[in-house]
């Protein structure tokens, strides 16, 4: 947690080079040079998004013009109405939402429980179990993709949302991330609660859970966004249109209407929008969650 507090407070600290006995005007000039550099870099990085939004408001035939038309004329708001009738986008959004919410909830619940077991209760074999857990994080998903596929097929779960929920809700990554936070909570706190007669589950639910709200927010947002954006999972397992997610819907839109450029960009904007909202609400939790991954634990 402290990691990001420090990132957040960075601007208040004097930057290296800005301090010292000599206070010349050079640091001030440097500051604005860096500012100008970053401004250009950010605009370049965001350019594809700008192009996405601009194109989504054009007529299909105006998307590729030479020179590039930066302001749509006429503005085709119509695209945003047309898309719902071309493909069942609402149903795709619904499926994505179900998956993202259920998987995130399960991940938070089971992940933080496991983190408590791995950090606050000492029992023989615990560390070996944890090593087995986290060593799988580095294993490429493709390594176990085929057996997973065979298992899901044999369980007759293919083409159900259940297949993805079961495959994605119990990731080792979530346990790892939560444990990183849990080890920073002093054991004395639990010890004191034990002396007060609270059970282990009581300590976890009533003391640790409220204390780790920022961690839950971080993991929750990362999981939500990952699930929402996931393409390969749904692509492999969800075959019928009524089960499709936004990403699959967008992909099929590209396949079906490949010269309807504006419509494709319109679908892209709609698929990115929820992520943008989540990101604006919780930017600091995203950053925090990622900064924690780099900490040694």
């Amino acid at each position: 947690m402290s990691t990001t507090d420090r990132i957040e407070s960075a601007p208040c600290q004097p930057a290296p080079g800005d301090r010292g006995p000599r206070r010349s005007r050079r640091p001030v000039i440097m500051k604005w040079v860096v500012f100008a550099l970053m401004l250009v870099a950010s605009l370049l990085v965001l350019l594809p998004f700008a192009w996405m939004i601009i194109s989504s408001l054009k007529q299909d035939s105006r998307v590729f013009t030479v020179p590039v038309q930066w302001i749509p004329d006429p503005v085709q708001w119509d695209n945003y109405l047309r898309i719902w009738t071309r493909v069942p986008f609402l149903s795709y959004l619904g499926n994505s939402l179900i998956l993202a919410v259920v998987i995130t909830a399960l991940q938070l619940l089971t992940g933080s429980m496991a983190a408590y077991g791995f950090s606050k209760i000492h029992f023989p074999g615990r560390n070996a179990l944890f090593v087995a857990y986290i060593s799988t994080i580095a294993v490429p998903w493709t390594t176990y993709m085929i057996p997973q596929y065979i298992m899901v097929r044999n369980l007759h779960l293919s083409n159900t949302l259940w297949s993805l929920i079961l495959l994605q809700a119990f990731s080792a990554f979530g346990v790892f991330l939560m444990r990183q936070y849990y080890v920073s909570i002093p054991d004395d706190l639990c010890e004191a609660a034990r002396l007060d007669g609270l059970s282990e589950h009581g300590i976890w639910w009533r003391i640790i859970m409220p204390l780790t709200k920022p961690a839950l927010a971080s993991l929750g947002m990362l999981t939500f966004v990952n699930t929402w954006n996931d393409y390969m999972g749904p692509f492999i397992y969800l075959t019928s249109n009524s089960n499709w997610t936004v990403q699959l819907g967008l992909r099929s839109l590209i396949g079906m209407y490949d010269s309807y450029y504006a419509l494709i960009m319109c679908g892209s904007v709609i698929s990115v929008l929820p992520i943008l909202v989540v990101f604006i609400i919780g930017q600091r939790y995203f950053i925090e969650g990622i900064a924690t991954q780099g900490m040694k634990g």
Partner: peptide, 30 residues
């Protein structure tokens, strides 16, 4: 570059990070 006190720091950081959390399908399309 971002580890110094420049105006708009939070915006720059967010701008650089945003592509990481956008869907690959949309990214590929654009």
């Amino acid at each position: 570059l971002l580890n110094s006190k420049i105006p708009g720091l939070r915006f720059f950081r967010a701008a650089m990070f945003f592509p990481y959390i956008t869907s690959l399908v949309a990214v590929a399309a654009v």
